[in-house]
Design a protein around this nucleic acid. Structure first.
Lengths: 210, 210
DNA sequence: GAATGCTCACCCTTTTTGGGGGTAAATTAA
DNA sequence: TTAATTTACCCCCAAAAAGGGTGAGCATTC
């Protein structure tokens, strides 16, 4: 088998001390080479085709374009690059935005140095490295709220309603009359204290009933 | 500081050899105590209030009730118990079902033994232990498909449509005329080759455009 | 400078839908 | 034996959705 050349990494991080620490840490590991290190996203994007990185470590708060916006731009120019966010922010919103934009991992800067190298290995193995809290946030985002005021049938109806189906389609799918669906929806509105489909869906999603 | 009593664990696994291996492994770690070990979900559910486990290791394929169905029953009877699925299955459907039902982690049986103990520690630290492939599946589930035939504006409209909003509400939110929204939706239907809201939403979600 | 694609906006029509108000039987669970 | 759930029906009517077509303004691309 042919020898694998060491994985190429770029770093986007505006703090000089942290950036240099990452460079040193990664170079010393021996298994990776730092193709380039940037203090802003624009420069990284401009050079990403030449750098041809396997992995990009991306900070979020950066001068100019922020790290979240930078992710899709990197991915378009270099689709095989895996972007891992490395930041101090553990805010739900930022985490899910980063993942939606295409991040393959999300690390917080308070991790021990060895964890960074472990994470790179995890990426190579087809994983998605995440800090402890981030993994929990991600998994929790799937959990449903079981204290729902709605009955099982009502939840079924609301689920279908939230997928854009009409009353009659829902009725067909549940093998009941359209008027029955209407009754369920009336009860859903009563319980959720709303007066329209959109409000019901919004409230149910926010409360994680569906 | 007061001494913490060792975390209590129950195991639900129908294969005697594997179950006993887990028991031995966990007992030997010293940091955990096996409160009970069951070969089926029904028995585990019956005793979960008495066992009062901090953690439940749950297999999926079991005689009688399967592990996925068992998760919510365990969580209702003992809300502070963290359920971790331990299985051979890496199927997307099962993973997401397990997480939706309330699993706090998902491990595959091909892991090295030490990984199980590490995972228990990870749980204690507020994490969500996952095998490499599972973590990638979970993170990938957030990624959007960037080869969408829809324009940015059309995606915006479709996103709002999929949240149950009416044409006029969408129009207000985007500061355009209702007729403009209609035009966009007509184009969306054309491009996606559908003839209704529900079909458009279904196709867009399936293709991960939204 | 012609062509294309995108965003925006208006017109017409039709059927369907959604939401409000009631009522009530059968089943199931507490 | 109450209470809750699921089912189903009636009325009404405004609003919404979907189909059709047209076209201006703008940016990009060829």
């Amino acid at each position: 088998m042919k020898h694998q050349s060491p994985k190429r990494i770029i770093i986007v991080e505006d703090d000089n001390i942290i950036r240099n620490a990452f460079v040193t840490l990664i170079q010393q590991s021996g298994d990776y080479t730092v193709a380039n290190a940037y203090s802003n996203a624009e420069a990284a994007i401009k050079n990403v085709k030449d750098d041809a990185p396997d992995i990009c470590l991306m900070d979020i708060e950066l001068p100019g374009m922020n790290g979240i916006e930078a992710i899709p731009k990197i991915k378009v120019l270099s689709p095989n690059t895996q972007v891992v966010v490395v930041t101090v922010y553990e805010n739900d919103d930022l985490v899910f935005k980063a993942l939606c934009e295409g991040a393959s991992g999300y690390l917080t800067k308070n991790m021990p140095p060895q964890k960074l190298i472990d994470s790179l290995k995890e990426l190579e193995n087809g994983g998605a490295p995440m800090s402890t809290n981030i993994a929990r946030m991600v998994v929790s985002s799937f959990h449903k709220n079981r204290q729902s005021p709605l009955t099982a049938r009502e939840l079924e109806v609301l689920e279908l309603l939230s997928s854009g189906k009409s009353y009659s389609t829902i009725a067909d799918q549940l093998f009941v009359d359209k008027e029955t669906v209407k009754s369920h929806i009336k009860n859903i509105y009563l319980k959720l204290e709303v007066h329209s489909k959109a409000e019901a869906i919004e409230k149910a999603k926010k409360s994680k009933y569906i």
